[in-house]
Amino acid sequence: MITRRLQRVSLRVTLAMVLLVPAFPLFWMLSSSLKSPQELMRTPPTWLPSEPTLDAYRTVFDVLPFGRAFANSLLVSGVATLSVLVTSILAGYVFAKYRFRGRDALFWAMVATMFLPPIVTLVPLYWLVSQLGLSDSYLGVMLPWLANGFGIFLMRQFIADVPDDLIDAARLDGAGELRIVTRVVAPLVLPAIVTLGVFAFVFYWNNFIWPLSILQSTEKFPVVLMLSQLLSYSTSVQYQNVVMAGAAIASIPTIVVFLLTQRVFVAGIARSGVKG
């Protein structure tokens, strides 16, 4: 009886720890962003802000065009995500439901590209995009990532489970292939579309090395690149609140998107078993 209770208590403690470790840095980010410079310099540091203030959030927008950066990120991530969804659904449908010679080889070749680290092709990508006259442009930021192997893989996985009978019935009713994809297949694989959409959005929102390499003009910077401009501030304790406020603002969209979709998203990942 006592050992059982002990077991339960120790399990509770473990669970609390497991909750604390991932949450603490996020808590520290919010807590520090709400402190005043005076409070930041206090020793020992306070855990919670004694007089919470939103000053730092105002300062971030004063020292850097953060609003513009936010809009840039929304534009680039939004368009790229849409493109990935469309290209992946179409390709996934073909690989799941059509039969032609070389299909499987082509499928695996395209899927394999998802393991290709961007750093390996950074130099030629920069050259290619420059040759197209697209360096330092929004299109140049998006172009190399408008389709990817992970999306095709995920969509093929889910579309393969759509019964062929449904598709054949639609064909008998005279529906064209495009109509079958948009009206029959897409609604049935909505969880996969949500999973891929969230994955793609988070990927483009967080992408750093490519915009860092291809962009020069500050007014085209996405949020994370703009945020890295605050690095010089992070060495001074009294500006810690501004850095943390910037980090919090940059994190908000990904966290919101994740919280809204987490049930479907986590299940989709468990099923796909692969990171893009």
């Binding site: 991932p22 949450a23 840095p25 996020l26 520290w28 980010m29 988070v202 929102w205 967080n206 750093f208 949020v223 994370v224 945020l227 890295s228 605050l230 690095l231 992070s234 850095v243 943390m244 910037g246 980090a247 919090a248 940059a250 994190s251 990904t254 966290i255 998107v257 994740f258 919280l259």
Partner: peptide
């Protein structure tokens, strides 16, 4: 949540 936040942002934290 730790997985979806931008690495750049949370690295600064």
């Amino acid at each position: 949540a730790t997985y979806v936040v931008p690495t750049v942002a949370i690295a600064m934290v």
